[in-house]
Simulated assay, not measured.
Amino acid sequence: MRAGRPRSAADPSIALLQALQHEHGDDLLRYALRHTRDRGQAEDVVQETFARAWRHPLAVSGSSGSARAWLFTVARNLIVDEVRSARHRREIAVESVPEQAVGDQADALLDRILLSDALTALSPDHRAVLLEAYWGGRSVHEIAERLGVPEGTVKSRLHYGMRALRLALQERGVTR
């Protein structure tokens, strides 16, 4: 086949490939399935076998034995090559995906300790409002009702509490 020129249905190699697939395709799939024990891999072997037959029609039709023997030899070689490959030795088929590895939690723990220390440096009023808003997820209205203070006071304490927290963190080496 010349590069850039697609083969037509009238091409003899296409007719040969169709005849080979019709005559030997099912047997070749059973052979590959018996040796790989994996349907997807067996189908890949059969597909690659016929692709090689298509690329080398003279080898198939001109082989000293039958075309069937050539196809099964190619399939066997593909299976053996896969078993010998490094990829096959590294891959292990599993029924379910294993648990994901959990990263080191030391940084998160240190961040929590640092933040806890900085929060203790705040006044109790500022700390209470910040905890309710950011860790409790409550709105200004909910915080005001919960703490028994006006909404404006909650807003003011949030503003000044965040400023004080930022300063406390900067004093502990957290810079921005």
Score class of each variant (00 low, 15 high):
58 L>C: 04
163 R>I: 05
161 G>A: 07
76 R>Y: 10
124 P>F: 12
82 E>Q: 15
23 E>A: 12
82 E>V: 04
162 M>F: 07
160 Y>V: 04
168 A>D: 10
174 V>E: 07
143 I>W: 03
151 E>Y: 00
102 V>W: 00
161 G>F: 04
145 E>T: 09
174 V>D: 03
5 R>N: 09
49 T>R: 03
175 T>G: 01
95 E>H: 13
67 A>F: 03
15 A>G: 14
137 G>V: 04
84 R>A: 08
73 T>L: 10
63 S>A: 07
49 T>A: 05
164 A>D: 11
18 Q>E: 15
85 S>W: 04
172 R>E: 00
47 Q>E: 11
39 R>Q: 07
102 V>Q: 10
126 H>S: 13
24 H>G: 02
169 L>P: 07
6 P>K: 12
108 A>Q: 11
73 T>F: 02
169 L>I: 08
166 R>G: 03
95 E>R: 15
87 R>Y: 07
136 G>C: 09
161 G>I: 03
85 S>T: 07
122 L>P: 03
168 A>N: 09
106 A>E: 12
45 V>N: 02
47 Q>L: 07
84 R>G: 15
91 E>Y: 11
12 P>D: 13
83 V>K: 15
146 R>Y: 05
44 D>A: 05
84 R>C: 08
22 H>D: 04
128 A>H: 11
16 L>V: 08
101 A>Q: 09
169 L>V: 08
58 L>S: 11
46 V>S: 02
16 L>A: 14
13 S>D: 15
82 E>S: 14
125 D>A: 15
130 L>M: 10
20 L>K: 04
63 S>P: 00
120 T>L: 14
59 A>C: 05
17 L>M: 09
17 L>W: 09
26 D>K: 11
